[in-house]
Simulated scan of single mutants.
Amino acid sequence: MYFDRYDYLGNSFEQTYRCYPTSFIDKPQLEGGDKIIMPPSALDRLASLHIEYPMLFELRNAATKRSSHCGVLEFIAEEGMVYMPYWMMQNLLLQEGDIVQIKNVTLPKGSYVKLQPHTKDFLDISNPKAILETTLRNYSCLTTGDSIMVPYNNKKYYIDIVETKPTSAISIIETDCEVDFAPPLDYKEPERSQPSGLSNKAQGQVEDAPAEPVADEQKYNPFSGSARRLDGKPSTYAPNVPNLEKCSQPEAAGSKSSTTSTSQSSASRKTSGKLVFGSNAGHATKEAQRVPTKEEPPKKEDPKFEAFTGKKYSLKG
């Protein structure tokens, strides 16, 4: 079916075509970008319009209401037909020969894009950043929700466009765009390893069990070593080591009894009717109890030393 009618809506271009993959015209290299091939009649109409360059288009599948964006490489397709990369047909859920609507649009330059690889194999590439920069040079625009294809080393890597700024569709021609990566779709966080000897139930029982009280440390006991002989033979002598705790108890009892006896003697002194002061109390009590039998003669006191009381001498003799 050939569509020779254009929809003239002011300065916009809008037309419907039947879509086919680029492999139909022997151009498989176009699979690594977002460029499509349109018929010459489309170029004639676009040249008569005042549109901005580079030319960007919106692709829409009316049956599934899915849309994407792309650029154009050449105008050499048969009339009524358009050729596009197969990954774009997959995004739009299009089959060979299905109808696609194409409309020219103007997109803002992108400032941010977030990408998410399908598989973690993409991270195993020696320099994925350089590969991605080289591949995106073949792209004119990016649309949120699309899955682009990055060919490398005879392998195809699919990457989802998770987010774009400032809008959901951006132009990446001659612009500095910040790129961020999300974890791959098949990435799984490593699980924490549990002890091999304990199951989950046993481990829970060990955690719930109350902690046992720590045993008291062994007290130091002096002279508790074993005896040794000088000739190296085993000794049969076993010393009887007294327990210091038990030995300290009689001392404490003895000190207590001495204290009580002292208090009793002091109480007896208080009942004798005399006042006793300080440490001379016992001496004063003994002197009071001593009865003199004879009067002792008074002792002569030694003369005290007086200075300058000697005799005078003259030098004449």
Rank of each mutant, 00 (worst) to 15 (best):
S23V: 15
S23P: 03
F24T: 10
F24D: 09
F24A: 10
I25P: 00
I25W: 01
D26T: 11
D26G: 06
D26Y: 12
D26M: 09
D26L: 14
K27P: 00
K27E: 11
K27R: 15
K27T: 05
P28Y: 04
P28D: 12
Q29D: 15
Q29G: 11
Q29C: 11
L30V: 03
E31W: 02
E31F: 03
E31I: 02
E31D: 07
G32T: 05
G33C: 04
G33H: 01
D34C: 13
K35M: 13
K35V: 02
I36N: 00
I36V: 15
I36L: 13
M38L: 15
P39F: 00
P39T: 05
P39G: 05
P40M: 08
P40I: 09
S41Y: 08
S41R: 09
D44N: 11
L46G: 04
A47F: 11
S48R: 08
L49I: 12
H50N: 14
I51M: 08
E52N: 09
E52G: 08
E52S: 13
Y53C: 08
P54L: 08
M55T: 12
L56M: 15
L56R: 01
F57I: 04
F57P: 01
E58S: 10
R60H: 06
N61L: 04
A62K: 12
A62G: 04
A62P: 03
A63H: 08
A63D: 09
A63K: 13
T64G: 03
T64D: 07
T64L: 06
K65H: 09
S67H: 11
S68A: 14
